[in-house]
């Protein structure tokens, strides 16, 4: 298909979104990610039955935590895309890229850059 998606996106592969833990998402932001999105299989089609549904709840919880500390829960999202749906994967990547670009750099990345510059 030779589809393209923005090069700002770094993919971290996991066996199932059920493996995504709150701390993994939090640490991504602490290390300077401007945004994070979790891509799981379509709801009802998880190979492990409920992995993506559990991920959804953890994403919701983490969004609230990010709001609490002022990083902004809107920087974290979850999408459900079929493994065979390449075009949708590329579309979501662009959508997330645009959304984060509009939000600007995360306040944590700014702090990390200031620290490096000092």
């Amino acid at each position: 298909m030779r589809l393209t998606y923005p090069d700002s996106i770094r993919i971290i592969r996991l066996p199932c979104t059920g493996k995504v833990d709150v701390i993994l998402m939090m640490e991504a932001f602490r290390k300077g990610a401007d945004g994070v999105y979790v891509v799981g299989c379509l709801e009802g089609e998880c190979h492990y039955l409920t992995g993506n549904l559990r991920a959804k709840k953890k994403v919701e919880y983490t969004k609230k935590l990010l709001d609490e500390i002022g990083v902004g829960g809107e920087r974290l999202e979850m999408y459900n895309i079929a493994a065979s749906d390449g075009p949708r994967f590329a579309e979501v990547a662009k959508e997330m890229h645009e959304k984060i670009k509009a939000l600007g750099p995360s306040p944590i990345r700014g702090a990390l850059q200031n620290k490096e510059a000092a």
Binding site: I23, M26, R30, L65, I69, V71, I108, A111, L112, N114
Partner: peptide, 20 residues
């Protein structure tokens, strides 16, 4: 687990304020 999560959140909250 909650210790890890809170540590991460606290560090970020301080970083955001320009503190460490």
């Amino acid at each position: 687990k909650e210790v890890e999560i809170l540590a991460s959140a606290l560090k970020m909250a301080f970083m955001k304020e320009g503190k460490e």
